[in-house]
Design a protein around this nucleic acid. Structure first.
Length: 208
DNA sequence: CAAACGATTTTCT
DNA sequence: GAAAATCGTTTGG
């Protein structure tokens, strides 16, 4: 995978307004190359987003909010874009999503893989690993574990101290961004085939 | 209140 | 490649 640093751009934290854009699929693609940062208990960890999936809400059979379903768990998806949605999957893994679009339009983007940047020692500790390898932040459950994300962070506004997405000027050429069907949503029938998954081609942290 | 089910990962054969 | 690990959420009786 090729990418280069554009020094003309300043590092900037993506503002809440960014996540309230209505095109959740376009945003999932745009987030490839942005940097996800967490800073819990003085432990800063971050990584380049290299794989995402869009969940388009009430018309998307794969989304938790399909059909406008509102439960205690999915309620956060109805908030205005820019907050975190972290839920437990298979009783083991915490999956980190970013709520998008306007209030009452329950869409979200699942972050599926990162290329680690800062705090790799802390990530190793959290993941109970001795040596860094590609499995450190490959897959949604793994990256959430490495960055210390869990259900208690649901509803947290991004861009504050604890969780941020930054544009650090890392540019991944459009020709290196691939799209395809989402993973693990076979139950969604035809919607499982929609090209809502995006990834940086050739990046070793992307799910196999 | 009981039971089934995951937007997964790791380990074992 | 198959199967276990493991529990909050959701649904149905």
């Amino acid at each position: 995978m090729k990418f280069y640093f554009d020094s003309h751009k300043k590092n900037k934290i993506l503002p809440t307004a960014y996540f309230q854009h209505e095109d959740v699929v376009g945003m999932a693609k745009d987030l490839i190359g942005k940097v996800l940062v967490t800073d819990f208990e003085g432990k800063k960890t971050s990584g380049i987003i290299v794989e995402t999936e869009a969940y388009t809400g009430i018309n998307d059979k794969a989304a938790h909010s399909y059909g406008g379903k509102r439960t205690a768990r999915t309620e956060v998806m109805y908030q205005p874009g820019g907050v975190a949605y972290v839920y437990l999957c298979y009783g083991i893994h915490h999956l980190f999503n970013i709520v998008t679009n306007k209030k009452d339009i329950p869409q979200a983007i699942l972050i599926r893989a990162l290329q680690p940047l800062e705090g790799i020692d802390i990530m190793l500790q959290r993941r109970k690993k001795i040596k860094a390898d590609y499995t450190l932040t490959r897959g949604p459950g793994s990256l959430a574990g490495a960055l210390g994300l869990n259900r208690s962070h649901t509803g947290l506004l991004l861009g504050q101290k604890l969780i941020q997405v930054e544009d650090r000027g890392i540019v991944i050429p459009d020709s290196d961004i691939r799209c395809g069907a989402r993973i693990g949503v076979a139950y969604a029938g035809a919607d499982a085939l929609l090209p809502y998954r995006f990834w940086a081609d050739g990046n070793p942290y992307v799910s196999k």
